[in-house]
Design a binder for these strands. Structure first.
Length: 471
RNA sequence: GGCGCCGUGGCCGAGUGGUUAGGCGAAGGUCUGCAAAACCUUAUACGGCAGUUCGAUUCUGCUCGGCGCCUCCA
């Protein structure tokens, strides 16, 4: 499996450090519905896991749930002003964690394969890490919190800027002046923030001082990934925007005082989904969630397909037109998968068998080549159009089922479990066939109308009737 | 200002130094009891200018344009 690595800025052969691939994904902050860009990021991470599994690796996938930060606090106060801060926070987090998981499932992400870790349930490991960093001289206590010292880190011989070249000269003056925190140096960041009135907080004793407060954002991922996967682990995923400062800071926290400067051997960053060629933002009114997509009666899996139609390292462009195109493509793939249930289905020919085998191979090759999903989909479509083009109304057999399952495992578009029509419905088709043979057109049309009422459309081909679900 | 990415036919979107990506859409046709689908054909391609080369969409330089990051952010 060849993968692009942000650390080396090149594509190279990936080999897990151990017998299984350990992956950590930066997860959502659960203060509201996540937007389609977040979802796209998780779809790409999910697809990475699928590709690795398909290549024969065992995968351990961990994702954090950020349920404590500024936005969480602000929103919980706003939404539940009468509740005690910790309760309000908890309630908000539970609510949107559910919404998040529902969205994940809707777009076909393998939620069962992910170990979710909540920030608020990992406070202890974060405090331990902060205490260790402080003891080792990488953290200092300021008036409003505990900070990480970039200087101490670089003085220890490590590089701050493994992912992005950091040039302090290009940091604007305004940022320094506007900075509200009391830190020693521009890039230093908060490991722990002291409690402000009416904020949820956790007790923390450090260096003999009582520092009730809450963790900074970056420390979460360092503490949680190390606790769950060890150090270093294999792959860290996230959107490109997280390269700096988030992942850079994670690396610093995780590797300060460690011999190995590596937090993860590979960083997998996906480019953003643009909307009408621009970054999603509330001010441009191009900010969408899965709710918006469902409200327009699009299948969430059509969104998944749309995302997979572009490579994870290029900016995908979301437009309603593109989503509609993806939906049409999805329907056609589904119709193709339903061919195996056709009454006229035949057994697999050697030629077709070979074509199936070849398609699977091509798809595997594409995925192994830095997760080239557009190319894999193109291979699939060649098989699909061949089947529609050639006089094979349908095929049955384990090979078909195996291929559909293979495609689902790889792409998660859920085509292998589509149910057959009922025997009663099949009977209607048989009756219609008989009516047509005896030129009873009225009867034939009535039967077709009956089937249509059940959401099944029937069309006549040289090889008999082929049905497709109209919904 | 610093760093980086990208510009492919109506739209989306891969890829390659010489051979059809693919999807969606459009036009014409074939088929057809009807309907629908399918199939066939067609059109519109690699931002611009130079350079390297037998040959560039693919490499190099310049240029124009778009985008991202540098601050919370998938």
């Amino acid at each position: 499996m060849r993968l692009y690595n942000t650390l080396s800025k090149s594509v190279s052969e990936f080999t897990p450090l151990d017998n299984k691939v350990r992956i950590y994904s930066c997860g959502p902050t659960v203060y509201d519905h996540i937007h389609i860009g977040n979802l796209a990021s998780f779809i790409y991470a999910d697809t990475l896991c699928r590709a690795l599994k398909s290549a024969g690796y065992e995968v351990e996938h961990v994702m954090n749930i950020t349920d404590i930060d500024d936005k969480m606090i602000a929103r919980s106060k706003e939404k539940y002003p009468d509740l005690e801060p910790t309760e309000a926070l908890d309630k908000l987090a539970k609510e949107y964690e559910e919404v998040f998981k529902r969205d994940m499932i809707s777009v076909g992400n393998n939620v069962d394969g992910i170990k979710f870790v909540r920030a608020t349930e990992s406070i202890e490991s974060m405090q331990k890490l902060i205490a260790k960093l402080h003891a080792d001289g990488f953290a200092y206590i300021a008036d409003d919190g505990v900070y990480f010292s970039i200087k101490a880190y670089t003085d220890s011989g490590k590089t701050y800027g493994q992912l992005t070249p950091i040039d302090s000269s290009n940091t604007s003056q305004s940022r320094i002046q506007n900075d509200e925190y009391d830190k020693e140096s521009v890039h230093d960041f908060a490991l722990w923030k002291l409690k402000k009135p009416d904020e949820p907080s956790w007790d923390f004793e450090l260096d003999g001082q009582q520092l009730a407060g809450r963790p900074g954002w970056h420390i979460e991922c360092s503490a949680m990934s190390t606790a769950a996967l060890g150090l270093p682990f294999d792959i860290h995923t996230g959107g490109v925007d997280l390269k700096f400062p988030h992942h850079e800071n994670e690396i610093a926290q995780s590797t300060a005082g460690q011999e190995d400067p590596l937090m993860a051997q590979l960083f997998f960053h996906n480019e953003h989904v643009m909307v009408d060629g621009k970054k999603m933002s509330k001010s441009l009114d191009n900010f969408y969630t899965l709710e918006d997509i469902k409200a327009k009666y699009f299948d969430p899996l059509a969104f998944r397909l749309m995302v997979l139609q572009s490579h994870y390292r290029s900016q995908a462009n979301f437009t309603w037109e593109a989503l509609e195109a993806a939906q049409n493509r999805l329907v056609s793939i589904r119709d193709w998968s339903d061919l195996r249930h056709q009454p006229s289905a035949e057994s697999m020919s050697d030629e077709l068998d070979e074509l199936f085998r070849k398609t699977r191979q091509q798809m595997s090759d594409s995925m192994a080549n830095d997760i080239n999903t557009p190319e894999a989909l193109a291979s699939l479509n060649q098989l699909v159009s061949w089947m529609f083009k050639n006089p094979v109304p349908g095929v049955e057999g384990t090979h078909t089922d195996g291929t559909l399952a293979f495609i689902d495992e790889l792409l998660g578009i859920n085509i292998s479990n589509r149910p057959d029509i009922t025997s009663e419905e099949k009977q209607l088709i048989v009756q219609r066939e008989a009516a047509r043979k005896s030129n009873e057109w009225d009867k034939s049309d009535a039967l077709r109308a009956q089937l249509k009422d059940r959401g099944i459309e029937v069309r006549d081909t040289d090889n008999g009737q082929v049905w497709a679900r109209s919904s």
